[in-house]
Design a binder for these strands. Structure first.
Lengths: 169, 169
DNA sequence: GTTGAACCATTGGATGTCCTAGTATATTGC
DNA sequence: GCAATATACTAGGACATCCAATGGTTCAAC
């Protein structure tokens, strides 16, 4: 982006919190704000990598999910649940992927309420190629130390479980 | 926010990566995906807490930033830099905060290119009240262990520095 | 001084997310 | 079997974010 700041803005915010009598929650505020900013940086990198494929991250996630499904197809609701986004976000993504010829809708064989989303041949190819691009362009050098990656995975798994994302021990 | 899944979807994705020959980047993929999901959960909590005040997180951040500024005013560009968002996002936020009577625009005394944003009395009051709500409603019980919060702050600070957010040792 | 490069804010366009209905189909209870 | 409830998808609206382009203003080089 722009020129680097001379100081960490989140550390400054934490100082402000401490100086205003909120020292007890200052660290928590700093951690949460840092997660927000980190997500923003990572999303920008991912979107940049996916741009040549005409994909956004939202559409890529759906494509990747379908590529791992049994027949390359899933009910819309199932995709919404697994990707943990609002059903309307899936409708939106499927609309655009369908326009691009990467997926197609089909009725569920036994449940008239349900619509299946299915990868087309082009969709499967693009899923492979874009995943390869993300692996080499983003995931292979994420900017975290290996030990820190393990820490992150553990800390965020605990958080997500406590938040009710999934059951577990 | 529906029913919890029976399995961690990110752990499943990691397994898929490993089974497709991308084991070397699977952990990194899992960590990044977990950050995305964690951000989503936290943002939802924050927005829920801010809703009674008629604020979104984007507008709250600007309000809070102004409340810590010397005269309660900053150049738009400065706000954009400190909050690390695109200038147009600031324009958008200021438009809405101004409509709500919480901030006001004024010309810069010496630089004709620059516009200052300034907190109104109502804006300052709302900043205080909404910050108190976030402190008690979100930051006081973030869902991380205290030790993990310190780990997060360190890991994400290193990441942001490496990403060019700010200079530092 | 003039002129051209750099900088600031805004507008318009594309996306994505969520929420609130509204429509259609399933399932459950009596 | 029929009514009441639950579930699945879609349509429309509110917001936020980014990018590209536009109109002003400032600054620096000559």
């Amino acid at each position: 982006m722009g020129t680097p700041l001379s100081r960490d803005p989140i550390a400054d915010a934490r100082r402000n919190w401490e100086e205003h009598g909120w020292a007890d929650v200052a660290a928590s505020m700093a951690a949460i704000t840092a997660i927000m900013r980190t997500q923003q940086i990572l999303l920008a990198r991912i979107e940049l990598t996916l741009k040549p494929f005409g994909l956004t991250f939202a559409r890529y996630e759906l494509l990747a999910l379908l590529s791992f499904a049994r027949n390359g197809s899933l009910p819309m609701k199932k995709a919404s649940t697994l990707l943990q986004v609002h059903p309307t976000s899936i409708t939106n993504a499927v609309d655009r992927l369908q326009d691009a010829g990467l997926v197609r809708r089909s009725p569920h064989p036994t449940d008239g309420r349900t619509t299946l989303v299915e990868l087309t041949a082009e969709g499967r190819t693009l899923a492979k190629r874009s995943t390869a691009a993300l692996n080499t362009g983003v995931f292979s050098d994420p900017g975290f130390e290996p030990d820190d990656i393990d820490q992150l995975i553990r800390i965020l798994r605990d958080f997500r479980r406590n938040a009710g994302d999934f059951l577990g021990s």
